[in-house]
């Protein structure tokens, strides 16, 4: 049976792992390779490295660390942030990343999703979506790496999920901004609605703070994976322990 995936996300800024609360006040939490190795040992199913400054700073980010990560890891990993050309995507994949995730560049040019999927295959192309609830609707936000540049993308979240999948996204990571970094649980209501319209794997992001949040998001929203950062970085939850607890709750995970 296909296991539910536990995915630590490492926000990378200037070559080190950082974490902010609701995308703000970034603090350094550790070295990329050290943290990556720790998560593999704990039993992470996949890692996401998210270069949080890239899209908003409009610069090409040095990604030599991707090759170092690829040499070290024996599990899959995805690189997000600042990939806005075919050449950049190819470089990241050639350096050994299994997937690339695009967010703001996909909103600027939705055709980029199709271009990537046609050349590298849909399985390499993840579309990340930052979404916030506003008067009962879910709307997409753009350039969330830098608070001063964050803007509404003028798109409805569920419609954008459908479009991204139609255009060739092989996986959707839905980051629910209202919940991000506050550890009060995933936005199960929003993720359940996303699940209804998303025919590719759906990964929940934003809000994990306790074991029951994982149980809840898998049982209620039926997502394929759950992504989290601070609960793992700060050792509030150990992944091996989490997986034992999920197994007791009859959720299929890789132990």
């Amino acid at each position: 049976m296909l296991a539910k995936r536990i995915i630590p996300c490492l926000d990378v800024k200037d070559g080190v792992v950082v974490k902010g609360v609701q995308f703000r006040n970034h603090e350094v939490v550790g070295d990329i390779l050290d943290l990556a190795a720790r998560y593999v040992d704990e039993g992470a199913d996949e890692l996401v490295f998210y270069d949080i400054t890239a899209s908003s700073d409009d610069r090409v980010v040095d990604k030599t660390w991707v090759r170092d990560v690829a040499r070290l890891l024996n599990i899959p990993f995805c690189v997000a942030g600042g990939i806005r050309t075919m050449k950049q995507a190819e470089a990241v994949l050639n350096n050994g990343a299994d997937k690339i995730s695009i967010n703001s560049p996909a909103l600027e040019n939705p055709g980029f999703i199709t271009e990537l999927a046609d050349v590298f295959g849909v399985q390499c192309v993840v579309v990340g979506i930052d979404s916030r609830e506003e008067s009962g609707n879910y709307v997409v936000y753009q350039y969330t790496g830098d608070e001063t540049k964050t803007v509404a993308a003028k798109r409805d979240t569920l419609t954008w999920i459908r479009e991204a999948v139609d255009r060739g996204a092989g996986e959707i990571v839905l980051n629910c901004m209202n919940q991000d970094g506050v550890r009060k649980g995933y936005d199960v209501r929003q993720l359940s609605q996303a699940r209804e319209v998303c025919s590719v794997p759906l990964i929940a992001s934003g809000g994990a703070g306790a074991v029951e949040h994982f149980t809840d998001v898998f049982n209620t929203a039926h997502v394929d994976g759950a992504l989290a950062a601070s609960v793992f970085h700060k050792k509030i939850i150990n992944i091996a322990d989490l997986k034992q607890d999920l197994t007791k709750e009859k959720i299929c995970v890789r132990n």
Binding site: Q123, C198, S199
Partner: peptide
């Protein structure tokens, strides 16, 4: 088949 309600691609750890 994309009509079963199960996500395609098949992505992740399986036995």
């Amino acid at each position: 088949s994309k009509t079963t309600g199960q996500a395609v691609p098949h992505m992740g750890w399986n036995t």
